[in-house]
Design a protein around this nucleic acid. Structure first.
Lengths: 342, 342
DNA sequence: CAAAAAATGATTGACGCATATCATTTTGAG
DNA sequence: CTCAAAATGATATGCGTCAATCATTTTTTG
């Protein structure tokens, strides 16, 4: 009925509370056979340490930091927003949550931000971007738990990754475009921020793979790199549409959607072009409802933030990570957009 | 830095700890102006009760019950499975989690199951199905928090609903089918378990709505009701395909997918028919990979279970519900299925 | 076997809160 | 003003754990 306490364990093991405590918290100076007795008693009783009581007694507050690109565009803004929403809950759970911002396209900015966290005894951090292994290694060496977000870091640099599988996302985009062709020939214009960005290149990779194997009658034009800028998107896309007629679809694996929307709307191509993009923002919503964009694949950063918070809370206490089903990006058409506020 | 304790509040308010406690826990017998002073002090300090300490002190264990249909088909099986996975975490959080099963298609079974829970001082329950308001009202009257799952109960019967919007799901299915027609004419065969089941009828409703308004060139045949049985699906579908030729798509808003798969596979219609179904199971996976099924809309019961657990844990302590973005069902094509185990 | 080292036991005070008791003060009614 | 009722203060115990101290026992070593 009630869960066993450490005292119960000690008594069953035939040792004192002090010894059981020494075993539980690995304080050393315990005879081998006492360790065994205590561990057996724990197993037998199914003892689980009361983390709440433990944290209370040692007067522990968790300190977490989220290292995010400055709210440059709406995607990271949604992350900020979700963290803000969780603020009260974090307080109630006695965790102090700091958000550290860095300049989005500045190469060393993330690294300096991470390095600055080094001395500050954080229990856990989550970060977005290609983290330098150096600072991350140092953080982990001092016992800080590390979670990478959005695009994965090498395994030895982090404890967990929270984000979608971008190759799958690209494959999915290709499948949807393929489906709408129903065996007919077609031509897709491909755009992305940059192939240097891992998530973009993963998507492009998956996209081409599926088209090649399952929809060979659909051709792909050379990738347009937009640096995630609306202006570049606008100009390059307009040029490409002029020189290559007969395009039937567009897949934008990166940002810069506002530019895309503008062009498609201006040239009134919404009937001819099947447009698939990533991440929903205010303008995408409108464009979906209007029929300018047909599908938006969304990572749901809000959910990623919730996951990251729950995960960090668990692992900083050295608990196993909570059971979490794989993150599947939402596929939005105009009919299943979430209600505005949520 | 460290969060204020109730003692801090009392001191700032200029009253004793006892009085502050009387205010916090609404024990009464406190002068109006003392209440005000204490509340102001709380606001000023941003006091948040340490729930962990509170529950520790009163030696409180949460008791939750999930009332689910017997593992009749794979969908509820996935719910069971996820609860099982969460078992260890629940223990660590000091919550006792019971699963109560009832016979799936027995009308009164849910109600008797709920009634049986009445005397057992559960802190919270989650249930699937059309709950009789009577038992639910009684449960809530005794302080038990109630969450409805999968298909919503009337607002006054439950504290929260966790599940997808089935009208949106139906609309989405229609949109996807519409997209693959690209303006061409088509004909959809519609199937469902029964229109009496709320989620099924919602889906059908949304589906027809979108077809009518946005894809008038696509016709819909009369709904086939399968009672979610593979055999009925198989026979009725085969008959319908024989009498109405020229079908271009199938939308099954209910269960019985195994029967559907069999027919489409046998008649080798996978190239002609665009098939959209709900909920992924082992056979659906194969069928998606094989191209027999094109899209599976999945509620992701695993995620719903996690949500329900987190929500109940919060509200039984009278905390505000954790910030949770709207549940959007996953749209699976063969390329974005989750890895087998997860 | 004696002395040193290692292991163990016994116990205590936080941590923040719930809950209870009892004494004391303040308030309001007559 | 008096007395009862209401409000308040002071204080204690327990929840399960951590962390620490000190005394005592057992084991090891030379």
């Amino acid at each position: 009925m009630k869960s066993p306490t450490l005292l119960d364990v000690a008594q069953l093991a035939g040792v004192s509370y002090a010894t059981a405590d020494r075993v539980l918290n690995r304080r050393g100076n315990v005879a081998e056979k006492s360790v065994r007795k205590v561990e057996e008693a724990m197993a037998q009783l199914g003892y689980i340490r009361n983390v709440a009581a433990a944290n209370l007694s040692r007067n522990r507050r968790h300190r977490l930091a989220f290292v995010l690109p400055r709210q440059s565009h709406s995607f990271f803004g949604r992350m900020h927003e979700q963290l803000r929403r969780a603020e009260h809950h974090m307080k109630a759970a006695r965790v102090q949550l700091d958000i550290v911002e860095f300049e989005a396209f500045d190469a060393g900015a993330l690294d300096t931000a991470l390095t600055r966290l080094l001395g500050q005894k954080y229990d856990g951090i989550a970060f977005v971007g290609q983290g330098h292994s150096e600072a991350l290694a140092a953080l982990r060496a001092q016992g800080t738990k590390v979670v990478s977000l959005v695009s994965d870091a090498p395994e030895h640099c982090r404890d967990h990754y929270i984000g979608i599988d971008n190759v799958k996302a690209g494959r999915t985009a290709a499948r949807l475009i393929g489906m709408t062709h129903r065996g007919k020939a077609g031509h897709v214009i491909l755009t992305a921020g940059s192939l240097e960005v891992r998530d973009h290149s993963d998507r492009i990779y998956g996209f081409k793979e599926v088209l090649r194997s399952d929809f060979p009658q659909i051709t792909v034009s050379e990738l347009i790199e937009t640096k995630d800028q609306d202006r570049l998107m606008r100009e390059a896309l307009r040029a490409r549409l002029a020189e290559e007629d007969g395009a039937t679809a567009i897949y934008n694996a990166g940002a810069g959607n506002d530019g895309l929307i503008e062009v498609v709307r201006m040239l009134d191509l919404r009937a001819q072009l099947f447009c698939v993009v990533h991440e929903v923002s205010g303008k995408i919503r409108e464009a979906l409802e209007e029929g300018v964009i047909d599908v938006a694949i969304d990572q749901r950063p809000e959910i990623e933030m919730n996951r990251a918070l729950a995960l960090l809370q668990a692992i900083v206490d050295d608990l196993p990570p909570p059971p979490a089903p794989e993150l599947i990006p939402a596929i939005y058409v105009r009919d299943n957009l979430p209600d505005e506020h949520s």
